[in-house]
Design a protein around this nucleic acid. Structure first.
Lengths: 197, 197
DNA sequence: ACCTGAACACCGTTCAAGT
DNA sequence: ACCTGAACACCGTTCAAGT
């Protein structure tokens, strides 16, 4: 024991994050703990706090992985032939699909909140920004007033998220991804039609 | 000790819920625990589990109180003279104001999620339903197809929520309630204009 | 330098025992 | 009948001590 040197510091960090993500995927965020991670990767609890600052630091890195996975899922799923409203609708569908297929890790994104006095670290904000830029670029293609494209991107993205989050957490009396899509479709159709006028 | 009979079972339940709500308001959901409640109300931990099923049962009752408070806040704030889009905009403003003024208890509504295998209890769903009915009745006044009013109410309500949640948790790069209102106003204007067409 | 594991101050939950 | 509080199986976090 001690001084095993089986893995580099960076390898241990990766083991922690990937094992933590698996724990969340299998048992939900409430069934997740750093002690469980330690048990699974075969290091003791002390080692986790050797390579990460604290619990929040670990959760944030796990959630960042989920954000990356979501970005990849959306980018790969987008059909470049679709235009305008249809492109946004597909974006919404991909968001819903990802959330549905990765319910536990997606939920963890919102079940965990940093204490209100502290701010999200810069590297984490950049991961969010990156996701967001996908929506923005889809919208900017067909919005006349370019200066307002960012505002509309925010409205649409946040609204899709709101519909998705309330549906999947059973706060809208809506069942199944098909009926969630009816709501996001209605949002997109009417909002964009309103913009055209 | 034992058999104090200082309070009825119902009184103890109320003490637990109101003390728990205060804990959340002052320290956030993460600074909340049933043991803290016990300490604050002057009963031992065992008593809490005498009058409530478990942790989830307690949190759900605290959150239901917040839902009720929100309903009251919105109903009292609504100006009955406002019509159509202006009425919905005011609804959004009231939602944002409530969330902003009661950030911790409002956050707790979403930071806590029942385990995915179980369902929300019926009495809790009814509290959500009651809140909805406010939005629904505001909308039904000027929607032609009455049969679709519920769908649109869900879309608008969930979208307002989405804008609010991503703004207040700093995931939209938006600061201050004023700029959140710009987004909800844009949502409502365009969605309703889209409906009219 | 790397890693351990005991120690500390917390959790939610149960239930035999006291009045 | 009502309430207690010890007991259990967990937490996150720290840090002296081992190799």
């Amino acid at each position: 024991m001690a001084r095993r040197n089986d893995h580099t510091k960076e390898e241990i960090r990766e083991m922690i994050v990937s094992s933590g993500l698996n724990l969340i995927k299998n048992s939900g965020f409430s069934g997740f703990s750093t002690r469980q991670i330690a048990k699974e990767i075969g290091y003791t609890i002390g080692t986790l706090y050797n390579v990460f600052d604290n619990y929040d630091d670990i959760v944030l890195h796990i959630n960042a992985t989920t954000l990356d996975d979501m970005g990849k899922f959306i980018e790969e799923g987008l059909n470049p032939k679709l235009k305008n409203a249809n492109a946004i609708k597909q974006l919404a569908k991909l968001y819903i699909d990802f959330a549905h297929k990765n319910r536990n890790s997606w939920s963890a994104l919102f079940e965990y909140n940093i204490p209100p006095e502290s701010d999200l670290p810069e590297w984490y904000n950049q991961r969010i920004e990156k996701l967001f830029s996908i929506v923005e670029s889809l919208l900017s293609e067909f919005i006349n007033k370019k200066s307002e494209a960012l505002k509309h991107a925010k409205v649409i993205w946040a609204s899709i998220h709101g519909i998705c989050v309330l549906s999947l957490t059973q706060k809208l009396n809506v069942a199944g991804t098909a009926s969630v899509e009816i709501l996001t479709d209605s949002l997109i159709e009417n909002y964009l039609r309103g913009l055209e006028k």
